[in-house]
Design a protein around this nucleic acid. Sequence first.
RNA 1: GGCGCGUUCGUCUAGUGGUCUAGGACGCUGGCCUCUCACGCCGGUAACAGGGGUUCGACUCCCCUACGCGCUACCA
Length: 522
Amino acid sequence: MRVRFAPSPTGYLHIGGVRTALFNWLFARHHGGKFILRVDDTDQARNVADALQPIMDGFKWLGIDWDEGPDVGGPHAPYFQSQRSDFYDQAVAKLLAEGHAYKDFSRPAEFGAERQAAEKEKRQFIYSRQWMAETEADVTRFEAEGREAVVRLKMPREGQCQFHDMVRGAMSFEWSGEQDHVIQRKDGSCLYHLTNVVDDGAFEISHVIRAIEHLSNTPRQIFIAQSLGLKLPQYAHLPFVAEPGSSNKLSKRKLDKYLKNRDFKVLYDHGEQIARQIGLTASPETFNPVIIDFYREIGFLPDAIVNYLLLLGWSLDDHTEDFSREAMIRDFSLERINKAPASFDPQKLSAFQGRYMWRLSMAARLEMVLPYLQRAGFIALPVTDDVKSKVKAILEAASERISIAGDILDYSEFFQADEKIEYDEKAFRKRVVNAVAQRELLKKFRQPLATASDFSAPGIEALLRNFVEQEGVGMGMVVHALRVSLTGKAVGFGLFDIVAILGKESCLSRIDRALMFAEEQS
RNA sequence: GGCGCGUUCGUCUAGUGGUCUAGGACGCUGGCCUCUCACGCCGGUAACAGGGGUUCGACUCCCCUACGCGCUACCA
């Protein structure tokens, strides 16, 4: 079994492309076959190496490795279509020689006129082939008229093309519905359908697993393959990945439109906030939830993304959702691919991410989170053991509140100087400024805190419980004012953890500062 | 216009003629827990696109319609 994914070097790895590649990869791994990466760079307008790097990096990050292709080479090299033109030329020559293709000397305007006439009469366009050169004499004559030739496929005009699609079942197309497609331009460069089929043949691809938009292209590719005497691959056409909340195909170009989708915007804003804190330029070219880099930048787990994508168009049964790599390789099959398009759901992706993050060991989470603190300027390199244990304590206290590695930046108050804490204005007013009784209690609680010998979370809890009992009030009378004073925020993890992590000195200093501001304002 | 593909809760899906008063997950939502938020636990909400057949019986098979998407390029 040999399968391939053929990305164009566009500079970014699209979520939909990843899903297609993943299914190919899983199929190969399940059957012990080969997964090949082939670079579709026939459009050589851009710098291929630069534009390919982010794609390869994305696959490597996701753990989708390839057995043959760029970087790793292989027995069928080169794997860049721009370097394979000899193969294409030979194929065109063979098709021409055996009458499966012809030189067409029509001028674009002439050909276009025929097509327009057909469209105007609302009938199917079938080229007259009146500028087809069948003999050398024709060629000479047309060239004498100053014409240039492209090479067109000489498609059958009767009968059906029938094939089996492993996702969709029996397929049947009328040959008469097919056009005489151009396979080679005037300048000698070859077009997609030809290059694709030639390479699949050369690479001995056994299964072509690709997106549904290629289903209609299959008959003409079969024609080319058969004319070239190539063994036909099995085909499997995948449903496309649709936009959130619509059945349109997901596209990187429509970021503005997707941002109107609430869930998509929540994800984007979340990422953008992290990006801003680590000094990352959120360029729409790469920083976009349709592109895989987005997730890597803000601290998603590749396993979570892969697991989510696996379920976008495929399922094992009515209840299994968590798949380790081993499990998905073991259980994957083309037969269980869904036929209908599947919408990309940012919320469900986030749910997977949360689950995967929480399953990670403390050591792994710590390693994930440290770079964000470094890049935001909160911790210095090298990271000392003291800093590590502090971050670890924060991770423990925050537990599932940190679902993306970049979320650690939500707790920046633990790394800021005491005099730099910014207060959430509303919370500060409600809990400290206007809450006069609570403020007095806070002032009073400062004393036992200052003399506490046990500054662990349980120690602080005992201290506070004892305090409120003596005062004859509820915990709420102290907790809220204290939290806002210490962190500037109304929400966060357990207060006793906050106190313990900050330590006595910081706590007292922050309490004093908050009380001072509150008294100024009231 | 022609050809092709698709259509089960808001979303991802289970379902291959009776087990479906349609199951699971995400979301949303009520409650419990509770120092806030989150987690967790218990509960709730919500779907077979429409119409004809076939059949004792249809989400499942057939036809039509509607809607969506793709191909119909000297794009890939």
